[in-house]
Computed example of a mutant assay.
Amino acid sequence: MRTAPADEGAVGRVGAQRTRRVRRIGEWLAGAPASEPRTLADALGFAENAPDLQRLWRWQPQQLDRIEQLYAAAQRAFERRTREDVCRALEQAVRGGVRMASVEHAETRAAAAERLGDEADAAARRLDADAALASGRGLNTGLAFGMVLSPVVLVLAFAVGEAVPALFDSRLACPEQLSLMHALVCFAGGALGAVFSVIVRLRNAYQLMHRAPGRGGVRNIPADPRQLAQIMRQEGWYRVVVGWFLATSLFLLINGGVLTIFAPPATPAGLCGAGPLSMADHEALIKAFFFWGTIGFLAGLNERWAYGLLRRGGTDRHPSDPAS
């Protein structure tokens, strides 16, 4: 009976550890939750009209205004550690500036002003790096979600392709099954190509923000990193979806004979004979899978190339077409 409280305490510690672990995972993916916003004066225990703080405002108005903006942005930082470190550094800088504002010595004031500027620049760099981290992590999360979703969609598409004919008392024959498999291989290649395209071309996903320097060469305050991470997550899985549609569109144009630039190494009708497949048929079957996978990969890898082929698909004609 005496061990019951100890057991309850152990269970409580395990539950608390599990809760902290889940919270850390959530913060790693979506960023630290928003905290109660506060001003520098509140953090330092000053009133807004405190004489020392007002003296600093009169001495360095632009610098202090920038620090106030950086402090507000730091409270929205993606990582909790960055939020705490930047806020602490800015608080210490302003506290030192308040002490130096009462000094009439010109060199001391100049050194204090330089320190305020250095701390503001360091905070801006930390927040830039934090926003870049949020952007990259959001993009990677979106791409990973798209890649995980791809096999699920493939399995569902294959199940639907098998189930729909059964509703009409029919079933897919060998040519239709091979065509469906080729389409799914092309579909998967489009997802892989889209992911590879993003990895190669967007080495620094933060470049998508196109942040320009503000007045006086001072960089603007970073955007909300949590919102930026959400935007980039959507951008990541959106790229995968675009790869799906481009690959499927090219499959339909090529397999339907509308786009004749590429010729599949084998057709389903030629591989579905009455007898067993020969060695040449096996080689043609394998080449067909690689062919459609490559078409899908190229479609997802290069959107301009795929869109160009789609435009040409409306003008190309099969050699046997009388209009050609």
Rank of each mutant, 00 (worst) to 15 (best):
W244P: 14
P276I: 04
A173N: 11
A183V: 01
E162W: 07
G97M: 08
V198I: 13
G275E: 12
R81K: 11
R171G: 13
D42K: 12
R311S: 08
I25T: 12
A16M: 09
T315Q: 11
F290H: 06
A288T: 15
E107V: 10
E104A: 15
E235S: 13
R13D: 11
L149V: 10
V155A: 12
A101E: 04
Y71K: 01
K287R: 13
D65E: 12
M1V: 11
A110F: 02
T108Q: 10
L29K: 09
Y206F: 05
L149E: 09
V103S: 14
G161F: 01
Q62F: 03
G216R: 13
L228P: 00
G193C: 04
G257V: 10
R115Y: 06
E91F: 00
G270H: 08
S179A: 14
Q177R: 15
D118Y: 02
N204R: 15
T82V: 14
Q62A: 13
G273M: 03
D128T: 15
A323S: 13
S320P: 00
L228V: 15
R311P: 01
E48H: 04
A4R: 13
G257K: 08
L44F: 08
Y238F: 11
L40E: 05
E176Y: 01
S249A: 15
L167W: 15
H182K: 03
G275M: 07
A110Q: 15
S320H: 10
S102Y: 05
A34G: 13
A166C: 00
D7W: 10
R66Q: 12
L246Q: 13
A247C: 03
V240A: 08
R312G: 00
L271F: 04
E107Q: 10
T82N: 10
S278I: 06
P264R: 05
G136S: 12
F158L: 11
G193Q: 03
G314D: 01
Q177A: 11
F187R: 10
I199D: 03
I231M: 07
L271H: 11
D321K: 07
A43F: 00
L271M: 01
A47T: 12
V241K: 05
W28F: 14
A299P: 07
V185F: 02
L184Q: 14
E119C: 10
E283P: 00
Q234W: 04
A194L: 04
E107C: 00
A89G: 06
R304H: 09
G45Y: 06
V160L: 10
W237H: 13
P322C: 03
G26P: 00
F291G: 02
R226M: 02
L143T: 07
A134I: 06
L301R: 14
A183E: 12
A41M: 09
A30E: 02
A112Q: 08
A223P: 04
D42Q: 15
P222T: 08
A101S: 15
R109P: 02
